[in-house]
């Protein structure tokens, strides 16, 4: 089964990379862009198992390693099969 984990900086944590990209987008003429936040997208392939169990495991590994809860939030997306 496959999973996608999205790791993003918490609201209130400054994202200088996002700010720089936003400035660049403004320079390109995209005045309507109000905010840019940059995060990580992690693709995971794992052995098939119950959805609930897989989700629990993915949330655990996201909390322990994939994201740092002090500064980041994460979201797990799970797809069975394939």
């Amino acid at each position: 089964m496959k999973a996608n984990v999205y790791v993003t900086l918490k609201a209130g944590v400054l994202d200088p990379q996002g700010e720089t990209v936003k400035r660049s987008l403004h320079l390109m003429g995209n005045d309507d862009i109000e905010e840019v936040r940059i995060g990580k997208f992690i693709q995971i392939k794992m052995r098939n198992q119950g959805l609930e169990q897989a989700r629990r495991q993915l949330e655990e590994i996201s909390d322990q390693l994939l994201a740092n809860p002090v500064i980041e939030d994460f979201r797990v997306e799970l797809a069975e099969g394939e």
């Binding site: 944590v13 200088p16 990379q17 002090v70």
Partner: peptide, 11 residues
């Protein structure tokens, strides 16, 4: 130790 170290604000 508490907290975290982020990217330098200057990048």
């Amino acid at each position: 130790l508490p907290g975290a170290l982020l990217r330098n604000d200057s990048l």
